[in-house]
Amino acid sequence: MNEQKVIDVKSLSVSFGNKRVLTNINLDIFQGNSYGVIGPNGAGKSTLFKAILNLIDYDMGSITVWDQDIENVRKKIAYVPQKDEVDWNFPATVKDIVLMGRYPFKKILERMNAEDHKMAEEAMIQLDILDLKDRQIGKLSGGQQQRVFLARALAQKADLYFLDEPFVGVDIATEERIIKTINQLADEGKTLLVVHHDLSTVSDYFDKVILLNQRLIAYGNTEDAFTDKNISFAYGGQLTILNKLGVTKK
């Protein structure tokens, strides 16, 4: 195995006000994998994303992406935030948003050219939303909305993807389409980090997992790290409920 290291997180700690959200996180993320980021509510999953993306300040630690400061490599990184962070009444159409994936490649006076429009169109085709391209984003179903933001990430042709809860509030067809896209990207050698909630599908969806609950509980290959013991460690008292649902495994 000669996998290239993409993200290197060293002793990362983050707090909001007086409240510690992440404590001493050490992580190496390798190329060509899809990582499921798993943990209970308030475990700091979104915070981890925002810290790596340098969108929030952190107390301690260092983070590099492809051995560099993230500011140098932002073009190659796509971020799909949680759906509840979006203003759905905004006068933006599907195509407007997917085209945003091309923004990082444009200088200030440069206009969008045919190539950019083609890439946006290809991304919309891949996620089956081309016929919705002139629709205002509030006039879409939850699944369609999620596809729009994933299509933007595809149009960006990024090498590293951060997807925050892409499966929340979407229909089954969309979930299948998204996981297919994730697997395809990983096969092409891209790296993906995906916040995921449904423990019963973790083993099917991801090669690797990051189990988090303010501290790093475990990470690595899904079959090694996603064990009963680690899950119970991450979820603490909530495990009885999980047992009932029959989602944990040997």
């Binding site: 971020y79 203003d87 945003m100 200030i108």
Partner: peptide, 22 residues
């Protein structure tokens, strides 16, 4: 007119704009 793209994305999703390096 010249900053249209920047105004659009920083108004719509400031976090995304920042993640893109704007």
């Amino acid at each position: 007119a010249l900053l249209y793209r920047y105004l659009f994305i920083t108004t719509f999703q400031p976090k995304i704009a920042e993640a893109m390096g704007i």
